[in-house]
Design a protein around this nucleic acid. Structure first.
Length: 374
DNA sequence: TTATGAAATTGCTACGAGTTT
DNA sequence: AAACTCGTAGCAATTTCATAA
């Protein structure tokens, strides 16, 4: 059993060495869940020589979790340099002498700009076995953003380099490695609300005789009622792209719920921007529950104004103005899902009068409140 | 003592078949 | 024949999501 000598050097020492190094970049490899370790490069070179002559047995080869990259001004890319093996520009050789599995490879440049470059070094970066070892990627990205280098164009170039590298990696060889793979998908792994589009998308390969499709062709589908929440409606004449089993209505007692209820799902390409219903003869259109869906402001019918004033509905009713409560979302209470009503749609021509009436009402109320508790 | 309830999804393990050493 | 690899089924834990009192 070999202790990794890299891990015994204090962080302070290391950082000083690196900053004095000019263009050099120091790596902090981390395979023991969250503990960052820092080492001094000079020491590495000496120890590996000793180690190599000692034994070739896998278990006794001393691992190194640190190496260097430098920024090449002419090709505008980071070049990997391994002081232990003297390999230059061969990032794929790093993995052989690293304590596996790799969780993170983090680069720190001489201005203390930090970047996750795991993709460049971990051949299994896109596989679930590595993904499972890492924290939520969104959180990680947001956190690293705080320490990102200020060199914009260099960052962009590296984004492209890493992207290209990932895209050039060979496909996994096992069926199970395709599950939630970021680049590929198998039809059997599609989720309930997912589908491949276009329908005639050809597979881009095969694994063990199963067709592989690009993940970029996977689209999220929704039922008509959910598309409306995004201010989109199904284009006339569109057929559901996929039909799935509908959720049971939990308000109906378990006994006999229709078991065969289905839900038609549509893709974005089958929808168009929601066109608000028209005002007819000074009547604002209402749905079967007497109100108006207003998930987005663009859903307000032409010739209407939206008044988000507490109690405006009562005021308008009393004065005989046209006024329709607006559904802006849904909420779960008691034993069901219920609309969130916020504000009302009124006719544009009534807006000023209603605002005025509402203020007066408000004044009255305020006055009364002041009288009750001065 | 602020939320329903079941389906969907994810994570994990055990098992069996097929392969390698 | 033992050790390994892979895919799946089956189970547990966790997350998601429906639609008008």
């Amino acid at each position: 059993l070999f202790k990794n000598i890299d891990n015994l050097i204090s962080p302070k020492t290391k950082l000083n060495v690196v900053t004095a190094d000019g263009k050099l970049r120091c790596f902090v490899g981390d395979n023991d869940a969250g503990v960052k370790k820092i080492a001094k490069t000079d020491l590495k070179k000496k120890t590996i020589k000793k180690q190599k002559t000692k034994s070739l047995k896998e278990s006794s080869v001393l691992k190194r979790n640190y190496w260097i990259e430098f920024w090449d001004e002419t090709t505008e890319q980071w070049i990997c340099v391994d002081p232990w093996t003297k390999e230059v520009d061969r990032p794929e050789t790093i993995e052989k002498l690293v304590t596996l599995p790799i969780h993170y490879v983090i680069a720190v440049d001489n201005d203390f700009g930090v970047r996750d470059v795991t993709a460049r070094y971990a051949s299994k970066y896109l596989y679930s076995e590595v993904r499972h070892l890492r924290v939520d990627q969104k959180w990680w990205d947001a956190t690293l953003k705080l320490f990102r280098s200020k060199k914009r164009s260099r960052n962009r170039l590296e984004d492209v380099a890493i992207h290209d590298r990932l895209m050039s990696q060979p496909m996994p060889l096992n069926i199970s490695d395709f599950k939630s793979h970021p680049l590929y998908v198998l039809k059997k792994d599609l989720l309930k609300f997912e589908a491949i589009y276009p329908p005639d998308q050809p597979p881009i390969g095969k694994v063990r005789n199963v067709e592989v499709y690009p993940r970029s062709c996977v689209y999220h589908l929704d039922g008509a009622a959910n598309w409306i929440k995004k201010a989109r409606s199904i284009k006339p004449g569109e057929e559901p792209y996929k039909i799935v089993k509908a959720r049971p209505d939990i308000r109906i007692p378990k006994d006999e719920r229709p078991t065969d209820k289905t839900l038609g799902l549509y893709g974005y390409w089958q929808t168009e921007p929601f066109v608000p219903p028209k005002v007819i003869n000074g009547r604002i259109p209402r749905n079967e529950h007497g109100n108006l869906y207003l998930y987005k402001r663009s859903m307000l019918p032409e010739g209407c104004a939206y008044l988000q004033l507490d109690g405006i509905y009562g005021v308008a009713r009393r004065l005989g103005f046209e006024c329709v409560p607006c559904v802006v979302g849904w909420e779960f209470h008691k034993n069901g899902n219920h609309p969130i009503i916020d504000g009302c749609a009124v006719l544009e021509k009534d807006e000023a009068k209603l605002r005025e009436a509402w203020s007066q009402e408000f004044e009255k109320k305020a006055l009364r409140a002041r009288q009750v508790c001065p």
